[in-house]
Design a binder for these strands. Structure first.
Lengths: 160, 160
DNA sequence: GATCAAGTTGACGTTTACGTAAACGTTGAC
DNA sequence: GTCAACGTTTACGTAAACGTCAACTTGATC
């Protein structure tokens, strides 16, 4: 009687979900503001159910693939309001495909920019080699690259 | 005496540069606000010199590869303040390499997102095929892709 | 009873690159 | 003389996703 209200009945505090998913309380409240989450209350405090946790997972997944919060909300809303599961799946699929296409386009744009950049680099390297070969940057800037890899590129890379 | 003040002395109006480089007057004035351009004045009107035109080219190139205006300004400033051409070239080269590394990272992030997206799509397609094969989206969304290709992806793809 | 940790609700700040009026001056064409 | 076309300045608006206070309440603990 005490032990069996385990999984489905379990509830979560905001902090627990934040820790589990590496989010901040501010973010969860923000999602709530935007209508993405609607946790229950116990007095003032938020109480997240199992379903809320699932929704949060979906939200974060959506973010990872570069969907905007409003787009995510639309998808979530579909799953709630409508009872025809297949129709929403079709819609989600469409959304995902669109996003995939957009990302592929972005990759192309990036490739174009990289081409321009490499040309510019090549020119600079050549002229520097002629004029002041000692000034050619070396391994030092690799730090920058490595440092950059540990950071917030995810945010910058996607959706804008 | 009249004919020989051709190329180097020639000046440009804001509109001429805008037409040539497909920019808006607002943009040029904004760059000026930010200290990227400093055209002369003839009364109130801006008069762009040859050098200004070059600077504008550099600005737009920088934008194309995803540099922020402030980064571009730093580079331009170097070319002005300092008279050691080689040193600035080295700095520019460094900047460009960093940007290239960042763009490569972005591409990786995008690839990661694409993997997640494709997985999600595959799952949805599979289940839809089982349940409601008639709802599987088809060529219709190709419009979206094509439309997207004609638009502002450049902005979204880079810098943020 | 005082403090402490954790929660809450506003509400403003941040960032980027301009767009979009509003209100006005100058010049050339008719 | 007057209308259109171009120029000017100032200044607010936008969009996204929270961060960062500030000021307060609540429950637990010493």
């Amino acid at each position: 009687m005490l032990a069996d209200l385990r999984r489905p009945e379990r509830t979560f505090t905001i902090r627990q979900l934040c820790n589990e998913f590496k989010a901040t309380p501010r973010a969860l409240r923000f999602y709530e503001d935007k209508g993405l989450l609607t946790p229950a209350r116990e007095g003032l405090n938020r109480v997240y159910s199992h379903k809320d946790r699932v929704r949060l997972q979906l939200i974060l997944r959506g973010k990872r693939v570069g969907l905007s919060l409003s787009e995510i909300r639309e998808l979530l809303d579909l799953y709630d309001e409508n009872d025809d599961g297949a129709a929403q799946m079709a819609r989600s699929l469409k959304k995902f495909r669109e996003r995939a296409a957009a990302l592929e386009q972005q990759r192309e744009d990036i490739d174009g920019a990289l081409i321009e950049l490499r040309e510019a680099c090549a020119r600079l390297e050549k002229r520097l080699a002629e004029i002041r070969p000692d000034l050619l940057p070396r391994a030092a800037d690799y730090d920058q690259v490595l440092r950059a890899r540990l950071d917030g590129h995810q945010d910058a890379a996607l959706g804008k």
